[in-house]
Design a protein around this nucleic acid. Structure first.
Length: 625
RNA sequence: CGGGGCGUAGCUCAGCUUGGUAGAGCGCUCGGUUUGGGGCCGAGAGGUCGCAGGUUCGAAUCCUGUCGCCCCGACCA
């Protein structure tokens, strides 16, 4: 494995904002403190090269166009170099993030990407992160890592400097590259192994304070995404594994997203892992008939069972049996972090599949897999295809049963519900088995797949499923890290209290890719003006000197009204090439200086609409007032 | 980690089935021409065909191994 060298991390972590000036201007005191732009860039000597054809290793639109238009270059799988024009877009996004962080009262710091093992050892993440962590050794053999996220060092920094409640609340953030050795990076910038992230951390000594800090970041995120023009859905996320209490993800709805979430017309939205099933009311089973065992030959699957039930044992009320009347009992194996393996049976309506991701969240930190032959061999009482909690010889599922196997039910399996389920004998099922009367659960579990049409838990109507790209995540960490690393302060009563923390991330480079994904057409990128690398792209086309003189006037005028200008002053490049490059690069406003130049007429070209309008140079300034 | 695809010039690719001195387009250099949609003419530079071994008189081409990349899935605080 080739690890990125430390120098790669530090070199890439800062957008160098002033290196894009031509050398002739760099020494001019007028531009010595120039920030982004207001210094026209001339394409004849800019470090920018567009590609005529799509790169063969890029399929996702944003990846393809960003490489082709000269914004980024691939260095290694999931690792990209940033070229000047790409750096400008990145800097624009970072600026918006910085402004909103400042408005939210957070202070910027900057940590190394290269860190020692110890803090991560203390919190257990050196081990928990597994293969996802880039690890390396220094020349002395000390373990180092490239940080996947920075909770530990932020916590330790505050511990070093603060010891009183009077110093809190505190929110600090950084914009830094993160490293995760993804099993499979994909989609260019959408899921890289090195990526730029804004991560903020809040420190409070009361839960109420944490709520306020959390809300401030959450509000800032809403403003950031609004300014970026990115549609987002705030979904409830699972907070369980990290021990926190509140967690929400900002998802941008898009088919290329990797997260599935649900939402209702009434405003409910949740990550699929965090969805909570609506629990139906319990049913009084007084007067229910006793359970009855029937021969149900050749019914190893739910469908064959339903068919058999309808033909041999139709419901007395005339309604047909469906999969939802059956109780499917799925045997899973849990592997605990210490390596012990135990079985778990999940009972759920037969028309539902088990969603292993939801199970993993529910049983974290254990891992889950399907039970294998060896597992079944240990429990001869379990007859595959005919497993159920009840048998003629007594209970077979549950901690208090003969097998002792833990038996958790879908939340819909409430007391009084009647089920058809396996009788633990080949070819036999028990009908009318009533929950709590005839069998007992050890508890419930959110394990069933979520389906479109399922009711939202807040009563806001049926949910639909959608795909989203996670572009932000706000998270109440609580006291997990402060506890592990000993971050305590003295409160008003002189008592040591453990600090409570929040963690707030925004994927800067992922956002850039998401915006690119959203803003393009067959010709190339179309940046929103808030993040465009330049405000205006001026094209000089023609060989007449008046064209270049007029273009020079236009460029100077735009510079005068504080616009960042990319000036295509290339002399021996044909108009077609210049138009094509302009469309590929995607600056929203293009000024064409060409055949009308002698009469003082130029064209304003709207990249997005394609509309071109003729404007007199003398009146151009008014268009940019 | 499972499934699929691909490694030939800076880029995008052909050539491989059927072994015989390395190809195209674009890009690049030089000269000329052209200037509102990636123009044209001429002359050039540029490749140990991913790597290693094997078969053969002879391997980009056939065989074996190996490395790498892309896509789908698993995985992803």
């Amino acid at each position: 494995m080739i690890l990125p060298t430390p120098s790669v991390c530090s070199e890439m972590s800062w957008a160098r904002l002033v290196d894009q000036q031509p050398s002739t201007l760099r020494s001019n005191p007028k531009y010595a403190v120039a920030k982004i732009g207001h210094v026209p860039i001339r394409m004849s000597n800019y470090f920018l090269r567009t590609l005529r054809e799509d790169p063969s290793d890029a399929e996702v639109t944003s990846h393809r166009l960003l490489v082709r238009a000269g914004y980024i270059r691939r260095q290694a799988p999931g690792i990209f170099a940033w070229l000047p024009i790409g750096l400008r877009v990145k800097a624009k996004i970072e600026t918006i993030v910085r402004e909103e962080m400042a408005a939210a009262g957070a202070f910027e710091v900057h940590f190394p990407a290269l860190l020692p093992r110890e803090p991560y050892e203390i919190t257990g993440r050196w081990d928990e992160y597994g293969d996802g962590l880039f690890r390396l050794k220094d020349r002395k053999g000390s373990d180092m890592l490239l940080a996947p996220t920075h909770e530990e060092v932020f916590t330790l920094l505050v511990k070093d400097l603060y010891s009183s409640y009077k110093d809190l609340p505190l929110s600090i953030f950084q914009i830094q590259d993160k490293y995760r050795d993804e099993a499979r990076s994909r989609g260019g910038l959408l899921r890289g192994r090195e990526f730029t992230m804004k991560d903020a951390y809040s420190f409070d000594y009361t839960d109420a304070g944490l709520d306020q800090s959390y809300q401030a970041q959450r509000d800032a995120y809403e403003r950031i995404f609004a300014r970026l023009g990115l549609e987002y859905v705030i979904v409830q996320a699972d907070a369980g594994a990290m021990g926190g209490s509140r967690s929400e993800e900002f998802l941008h709805p898009t088919p290329v997203g990797e997260d599935t979430f649900v939402r209702s017309a009434g405003g409910y939205a949740a990550n699929i892992e965090a969805f909570r099933t609506v629990v139906p009311p319990s049913i009084d089973w007084a007067g229910f008939p006793a359970a009855e065992v029937f021969d149900t030959p050749d019914t190893p699957t739910i469908q064959t069972l339903v068919d058999r039930a309808n033909s041999d044992h139709p419901r007395p009320d005339g309604r047909a049996w469906t999969g939802a009347d059956t109780l499917k009992n799925v045997v899973l194996a849990l592997i605990q972090p210490d390596g012990t393996r135990e079985l778990l049976v999940i009972g759920l309506p037969g028309d539902r599949e088990v969603d292993l991701k939801r199970v993993e969240v529910a049983v974290a930190p254990a891992e889950v897999e399907a039970a294998n032959e060896t597992d079944f061999a240990r429990f001869p009482g379990l007859v595959k295809g005919y497993i159920g909690p009840w048998s003629a010889n007594g209970a077979v599922l549950g901690e208090k049963s003969a097998t002792g196997i833990r038996f958790l039910g879908d939340p819909r399996v409430v007391p009084g519900t009647e089920w058809i389920t396996g009788a633990n004998e080949p070819g036999r099922h028990v009908f009318g088995l009533v929950a709590d009367r005839d069998f007992a659960l050890d508890g419930t579990i959110e394990a069933a797949e979520v389906r479109a049409g399922d009711p939202a838990p807040d009563g806001s109507g049926p949910v639909e499923l959608a795909r989203g790209m996670e572009i932000g995540h706000v998270f109440q960490l609580g006291r997990k890290y402060a506890e592990a690393l000993g971050l305590k302060v003295l409160d008003e009563n002189g008592k040591l209290v453990t600090v409570t923390m929040g963690s707030y991330g925004i994927g800067v480079t992922r956002i850039l890719a998401t915006i690119a994904e959203l803003n393009n057409d067959a010709k190339g990128l179309i940046w929103p003006e808030t993040v465009a690398p330049f405000d205006v792209h001026v094209i000089a086309t023609g060989r007449d000197e008046v064209v270049f003189e007029t273009a020079g006037t236009v460029v100077a005028m735009l510079e005068g009204v504080q616009r960042d200008v990319l000036y295509d002053d290339r002399r021996k490049v044909s108009p077609g090439v210049k138009f094509g490059d302009a469309e590929l690069i995607g600056i929203p406003v293009i000024v064409i200086v060409g055949r009308g130049a002698a009469d003082g007429i130029v064209e304003l070209w709207d990249r997005r609409s394609g509309e071109r309008t003729q404007v007199a140079v003398a009146e151009l300034a008014a268009s940019f007032a």
